[in-house]
């Protein structure tokens, strides 16, 4: 807090500055200057400089983040496609990225694995990998953008999520599709329904024409080129169609929930 105040004008001692300036003023303006300075301080207070670490600042920031969710949902154009690239543009090697080392990435046996389908769907039958592989697949070469700022172009092949949702009779008027994953500590993430129904949102089974490797989320990841990377869950084990906001691994820690690109 004290640190913030000192840095309001970097490298300048505000008290000395004010003292110097006041000396040069006629009486009348001197009084006005001090009043003005006081209201400037009040402005700094109001805008949060002195409440950086307090919970009121956190509450304010959380509210603005919710507002930003609404703005982004409003901006989201269901027909706007993420730019696609030629296969030659794929980043090699495509980075492995998680909150754990590669050695801790889930090792899933594809023969035992089943995708659980829950919530507002007609058919809740779990799907084996073999059954999923039989669904029609499309390929996309799109840019993956990480919340950290870096980006990488990847080639993903799989079934459009909206086709699968139709197949299982999902209520597409519901608000979210919520994914749970096999990552340690239980990764999960909600996806708003308009994005779930976007033509490029994909249940991904292949990377660069090869069966999705362990590093990128074997056996299945959800590729969402209209969202930041952390909204693209890997090692997915279940999806739930729901009206309830169930939170997510990073969303709960403060990343903006919509995080649309």
């Amino acid at each position: 807090m004290g640190r913030m105040r000192k840095l309001l004008i970097p490298g300048v001692d505000k008290k000395l500055l004010v003292k110097d300036a006041v000396k040069l003023m006629p009486d009348l303006t001197r009084r006005r200057f001090i009043t003005g300075g006081a209201s400037l301080g009040a402005l700094a207070l109001l805008t949060g400089c002195d409440v950086v670490d307090s919970s009121s600042a956190e509450t304010m920031l959380a509210e603005v983040s919710k507002f930003n969710d609404a703005v982004q949902a409003w901006m989201f154009n269901p027909n706007a496609l993420a730019p696609t690239f030629p296969e030659s543009a794929v980043t090699k090697p495509f980075p492995f990225n998680a909150y754990y080392d590669f050695d801790d990435a889930p090792e899933i046996n594809g023969n035992d694995w089943k995708l659980e389908v829950r919530g507002l769907v007609e058919n809740k039958k779990p799907w084996t990998l073999e059954e999923l592989y039989k669904l029609p697949q499309v390929k996309q070469v799109t840019r993956h953008i990480c919340v950290e700022g870096w980006s990488a172009i990847g080639s993903w092949t799989g079934t459009p999520l909206r086709d699968f949702l139709k197949l299982v009779g999902a209520d597409t008027r519901a608000k979210y599709v919520w994914f749970q994953c096999a990552d340690k500590d239980g990764y999960n993430s909600p996806l708003d329904m308009p994005t779930a129904l976007h033509p490029q949102t994909q249940m991904t089974f292949k990377f660069a024409d090869e069966i999705l490797p362990r590093a990128y989320g074997y056996p299945m990841k959800i590729r969402v080129p209209t969202k930041l990377g952390f909204k693209n869950p890997k090692y997915v084990i279940s999806m739930e169609v729901t009206n309830e906001y169930k939170g997510g691994y990073w969303e709960d820690q403060g990343y903006n929930s919509f995080s649309g690109s």
């Binding site: 840095l7 970097p10 603005v64 983040s65 919340v147 950290e148 903006n256």
Partner: peptide, 20 residues
């Protein structure tokens, strides 16, 4: 010592609030 937000998530919250 001269950044705001404490970590990436906090800084993003500040950045996308102050941007308005």
């Amino acid at each position: 010592s001269i950044t705001l937000g404490g970590w990436l998530g906090g800084a993003l919250l500040w950045h996308f609030a102050a941007m308005w």
